[in-house]
Design a protein around this nucleic acid. Structure first.
Lengths: 151, 151
DNA sequence: CCGTATCCATTCCGATACTG
DNA sequence: CAGTATCGGAATGGATACGG
């Protein structure tokens, strides 16, 4: 009786991605990293999670290559956690989560944090799926082809 | 000792969204729904998860308003599960997961399923965060403003 | 300050048996 | 076919104590 099914070897990229980030803490840690948080205790204070859980998640994120350990910027003895390229590429996903949350998980008059363009201080555009020519595509206009042959 | 922390009332839309979809099965069920799957046993066969888990997840998705129960299209006694507007709005998120997975979780020569524009049979554009004017925005050019005042 | 180690309750999940 | 009920093992998560 296998402890749990994994999709690490799935042929569907969505399944593999969910296997990695489909967790209640990982993406929030990454979100904080985008906000400039880099130290253990800052993550812990900001997220309010137990230290052992944070520890295991940070280790997992490093193992996955989403975060990397770097020397402390202030020369202190301890290190910091920084987003890698793979981690920074999660940005658009967090934007998607944020926009979906804004649209469907808040009442109209309910306040929430907002993500702003740093230059203009205006919110971002809505994310949209587009075809190769740049046309906006709805879910019904796209289809999954089961396996992409290698050659 | 609270069983688990929830972020249902968080002021950050990302936290609320993760609270809902930050699960190893929910988004895969939604993915299958986009692929046209609508019956209990089809989900179960396709995902290979235990029936009790599928049952609880479907109930949760319906409770969240992501799926809804509709009469069977073929007039059979049982019902089917269909995406609501809220569920269809997860499309762009799945596209983001897929693209991130393609980019970072597969070897170069490793085959995977692909999402194609149904008309042209070509893959979609890469998702991009854009500012209000349509300029592509990187993560360092965006910043979270803590709370959006109501008025 | 930055974690690790341990303990315990809760939850998750797979397998199986069972109902309509 | 479409679930529900139950069981047991595994993982999760919070609290706390401890070490570098």
């Amino acid at each position: 009786m296998p402890p749990r099914v994994t999709h690490e070897r799935a042929e569907c990229p969505v399944a593999r991605a969910v296997d990695v980030v489909g967790d209640r803490w990982l993406l929030l840690i990454v979100r904080d990293a985008f906000d400039g948080i880099s130290r253990f205790s800052d993550f812990q204070r900001n997220l309010g999670l137990a230290k052992n859980i944070l520890s295991s998640r940070l280790r997992e994120l490093v193992a996955q290559g989403i975060l990397e350990v770097v020397p402390a910027s202030d020369g202190s003895a301890y290190h910091e956690y920084a987003l890698t390229r793979k981690g920074r590429d999660l940005f658009v996903l967090l934007v998607g989560l944020r926009q979906w949350g804004e649209d469907h998980l808040f009442e109209d008059d309910e306040p929430h944090s907002v993500l702003l363009d740093v230059r203009t201080q205006k919110p971002l555009q809505k994310l949209e799926a587009r075809d190769a020519a740049g046309r906006v595509l709805t879910s019904t206009e796209a289809i999954v082809r089961k396996v992409q042959a290698t050659s």
